[in-house]
């Protein structure tokens, strides 16, 4: 009889990731999601409405600064819709990235005391982020429908609306992968935390959130298009608003990028989780 169920050794194979174990801990995943949702609006008056206030205020500010003062083109689309759609999908990415990037540092206390598949935490973060995203997304839909029914003819929704779930998955996947890599590196090199906040901010300007790709001068276009987030932002806006550009190649590029980044992210994360408590 040699049926040991637990085997702890110094080194594990790079690809030895126990996905079955994550499935066994699915109730924990649920509890973490519940925890992060509940605790946000305990002892607040507005509760989940706060999720809407943020994109609302940001859109108002963008309309004022980029739309009215800087007069950046929105391809003729209503500025409110253009900015709001960009902010809503971008927020989901930056939220996923930011939350998962702090996995090890914010949960060091728990990780130091008990074992469970660590990947549960970032998975819970992106899932609870998804709930927040849907609240903001519904808000966008309401504003969107208002424009449609008030007879705006520039807006042309089209069949690529069917790809919206794909865009959401891509955003979650890239945010998760980047967050996994970041969280693994920050356990040892704390400097990266300083980079994170303004890094995400800068990345937003390198992504067509507040401007359409069509306004970029030809010689810089290649840099913006090299950004794997560009096709997602463009595709999302194209689906709802009809302006901009859609191509399968660009989408495949983003998808490929996500798969590779996620692959490395999970490997690095998995290697870090085994000993991070000694270095944190």
């Amino acid at each position: 009889m040699n049926n040991y169920t637990i085997d702890i050794t110094p080194k594990k194979h790079l690809l030895d990731i126990n996905f079955k174990e994550i499935w066994l801990y699915r109730d924990l995943l649920y509890m973490f999601i519940k925890r992060s949702i509940i605790t946000v609006y305990k002892q607040t008056i507005l509760g989940p409405i706060w999720f809407i206030v943020q994109p609302l205020m940001t859109t108002a500010m963008y309309v004022l600064v980029f739309g009215q003062i800087a007069k950046i083109s929105t391809d003729g689309l209503p500025q409110v819709l253009f900015y709001l759609s960009g902010i809503v999908i971008w927020n989901y990415f930056s939220e996923s990235f930011n939350q998962t990037a702090h996995t090890f540092t914010t949960n060091a206390q728990i990780f130091g005391k008990v074992y469970f598949p660590r990947l549960i935490i970032p998975l819970a973060e992106i899932t609870s982020g998804l709930i927040k995203f849907f609240i903001q997304f519904s808000f966008f839909i309401i504003i969107y429908l208002y424009f449609i029914f008030s007879g705006n003819t520039i807006i042309q929704p089209n069949w690529t609306l069917a790809l919206v779930p794909v865009y959401i998955v891509l955003m979650a996947g890239i945010g998760l992968a980047a967050g996994l890599i970041f969280s693994s590196l920050t356990t040892k090199y704390r400097d990266l935390n300083h980079l994170l906040t303004f890094g995400i901010q800068l990345l937003m300007y390198a992504t067509p959130v507040i401007y359409p790709v069509s306004t970029i001068p030809e010689k810089y276009k290649i840099f913006i298009q090299a950004n794997p987030l560009t096709p997602i932002l463009e595709g999302f806006k194209y689906a709802f608003l009809g302006a901009g550009h859609f191509s399968w190649d660009a989408l495949a590029y983003s998808g490929g990028f996500m798969v590779i980044l996620l692959f490395f992210g999970i490997i690095i994360f998995h290697q870090t989780e085994r000993n991070f408590i000694d270095t944190v």
Partner: peptide, 21 residues
């Protein structure tokens, strides 16, 4: 408790292990 991994050696166990650190 598998909070950290050993430098050398091996631990094997059967069944569910819970730790109360």
């Amino acid at each position: 408790s598998q909070v950290t991994s050993p430098s050398t050696g091996r631990i094997r166990a059967r069944g569910r292990m819970a730790s109360l650190l």
